[in-house]
Structures are given as C-alpha cells and as structure tokens.
Design a protein around this nucleic acid. Structure first.
Lengths: 149, 149
DNA sequence: TCGGTTTTATACGGCACCAAATTAACCAAG
DNA sequence: CTTGGTTAATTTGGTGCCGTATAAAACCGA
C-alpha cells in the first residue's frame, strides 16, 4: 500500500524498464557476437527446443507464455531466419512439429555464450545469491498471474 | 558462465516474462477499476509528470527510458485519451511542453489505487524486505546498461 | 552567414495482445 | 458410420508499444 513518490520506487516501472534494457543489451550482445539471425524474442522458443525438439505450436506458446497467434508470427520469422522448420506430425495431421535446423542446433553454443556474457554485464555487482533470489522472486510473480489450466 | 538447462533458469526469460504478466495484470486492474483511458505504458510518463509538470519530450523519454521517437507516439495516444496537452515552449520553438490536463491530474489517485492493488496481488507471497530487495536489484540492472548521458 | 547540434516527428519493421473466423482433423456417442 | 463437439494451427484485422533510421525545423557558436 505504498504511494510511489518517484518512478524509481514503483516496482512496475522498474520491472518493465529492466526488461527493456536487458532486451536492448541482448540485441547488442548478439550483434557483436556475430549472431545476426537471432533476436531476443527467439530465446523462449530456442530454450524450449534445445531442451526438447519437435514440440508443437501449442506446447511452445504455453512454455514461452505467448498467445498461439503470436507464436505463429514468431515461428514465421524464425523459419525465415533459418533456425527451424515446420514438419507435419505423423500422429496428428492437424499438428506441426517444430524442429530445429542444423543452424538452429549449432547456434546454441554461440548464443548461450553471448547470453552469458551479456547477463554477466547487466548483472554486474550482483552476487550469486542475489541472482538466485531475483530468479525466485520473478518466478513467484509469474506464477501469481498464471492462468488456470 | 552458467548453462541454463531450463528456461526457468534463464534470468532474461524470467525478466521478460514477469514484465509481460505484470503488464497484463495492470491492464486488467485498470479496466476493473474503471480507469479506461489509462494503459500500463502510460505509467512512466504519468509518474514523471505528477512529480514535475511541463517537461519536454526529451526529458520524458530520458526519465521513462524510451527513445524520443517512441515517446512521440506514446504522447499521441495519451493526448488522444485526454491526459495531457502539448504546448509550444516560449523559450525554444523546437520544443514542446507536456502538461497534464485536469483529467490527467485528477486521475492520479484512482490510478495509484489500482496500481497498488494490482502490485499487491502479483507480489503476493513476497515480504516487504523481498520487495525492497527486488527493487534494488532491478535498479542495479537498469543502471548497468543505461549509461548514456 | 555557415555548419554542427538539438528537438521533435515520420516511416517502417518487430513483437505482443485480442477477437473472430477458418480449415482440417480428431474423437466419442449414438 | 455418421454426426457433432473439440482441438490444432493459422488467418484476418485491429491496436499498442518499442527500436532504428531519417528528415525538418530551430538553435547556437564561430
């Protein structure tokens, strides 16, 4: 029940601003690492597919926290950029299996390297415990607004 | 030098996802509070103007952490929604003074009430100390990538 | 007066939401 | 086996919001 006398006291202001600056830093990090065909928005899909290839669109949209119609456009761009392909599901002809291309697979190491370096830079001054604390708190916020089923 | 085996271990994933869910919660919070002409993105501008009215576009873009070109469109929408006006700066014919309308000024209390309630909901389960910790860590992240005076 | 800078605006692409409709395929109950 | 409800993915159309690149006008110092 605070009154936020200044923007810097408003958690929402800080959260959206931190997300924006992290996105900008990540975009520059990819660019300077020579990873030209990957955008920050791709990360949610890539992380999911590196863990489990061949997911369906609906699985991906749930894991990335995006609407299915948003995921369609995102996958369009990632397909255009050579990171993945859509292949029909043999067990369900309605569904598409989203599979990484060799490029999408081999991009993992340089991408993770760029992400690590960028995160290390923007989180400079935070201890490992503080980073873990932050992750824990963010997970709580995310689950507090999660939709039923 | 972590390897984020799962998306939930990647701080960037958590940060952008938390920002999205918080934005969605705030939008619903405004709507259910009867504050129909205010959007979450307006908060940065409103917080700055409630503190100091009559700022220029460039001042606002710096304080909100947005590009000036982004601020132009944002101010267009806020002007359309009756929250502010642009008036020419008497001292500099290039500049615009952004001033709150009576509506923009009197909207402060209901908006802050809706923000408080929404933040209390999405941060349920966090102690006051944890909220303060989070704010501190987010400010560090923002300042680590924002040095462009 | 000239040239560089500052302020704001425009244009365009990317990325997210929503609502509604479509298409095709799945599946269970009759 | 056919009917009817559901599900998967996409499409359409709209709006919002963010960045880059560029332009137009005004400012200002030399």
């Amino acid at each position: 029940m605070d009154i936020f006398t200044k923007p810097e006291e408003c958690p929402y202001y800080l959260l959206s601003r931190a997300s924006l600056t992290a996105t900008a830093a990540l975009r520059r990090g990819f660019s300077s690492a020579g990873v030209e065909n990957v955008r920050p928005a791709y990360m949610g899909v890539l992380l999911a597919l590196w863990l489990e290839d061949g997911l369906k669109v609906l699985d991906l949209s749930r894991r990335a926290g995006l609407e299915p119609s948003t995921m369609t456009g995102l996958l369009d761009r990632m397909e255009r950029d050579g990171l993945l392909t859509r292949t029909p599901d043999p067990d369900d002809r309605r569904a598409q299996r989203i599979c990484l291309t060799p490029d999408g697979l081999s991009a993992r190491d340089p991408i993770m390297k760029a992400v690590d370096e960028t995160l290390a830079r923007i989180m400079a001054g935070l201890s490992d415990e503080e980073v873990e604390t932050m992750k824990r708190l963010l997970r709580i916020i995310i689950s507090n607004t999660g939709e039923r089923t």
